[in-house]
């Protein structure tokens, strides 16, 4: 069981307190109605599946309840860093 650093609680907590929430930095378009079908498809369905460094969202659901961002290596399963939602991509 991995330990994950929650950037809000500022401590490492056990994985079972967390839930993965998919790829990070996929912002909902401000005006969805202006999106072309292709743009909307990309927002809805197209996701990265990198080997290695991956930006993803987690939620400390059984802790402080906050969504946050993380950089995790998909090969080693090691977390490089975690940071608060809304902070720039690392």
């Amino acid at each position: 069981m991995i330990l994950i650093h929650c950037p809000y609680c500022d401590e490492k907590r056990p994985e079972i307190e967390f839930a993965n929430a998919g790829q990070a930095h996929v912002a909902r378009p401000l005006d969805p109605s202006s999106q072309s079908d292709e743009e909307w498809e990309a927002y809805l369905f197209i996701r990265a599946n990198p080997r290695g460094r991956h930006h993803e969202r987690w939620r400390h659901v059984h802790g402080c309840g906050r969504f946050f961002n993380a950089v995790r290596d998909t090969v080693t399963d090691k977390f490089e860093t975690t940071y608060k939602a809304g902070e720039p991509r690392r």
Binding site: A21, R28, V61, F67
Partner: peptide, 13 residues
């Protein structure tokens, strides 16, 4: 609740 928290925290903070 999780879905609503998601929109509230990350899209419309």
């Amino acid at each position: 609740l999780n879905m609503m928290e998601d929109y509230l925290q990350t899209e419309w903070p």
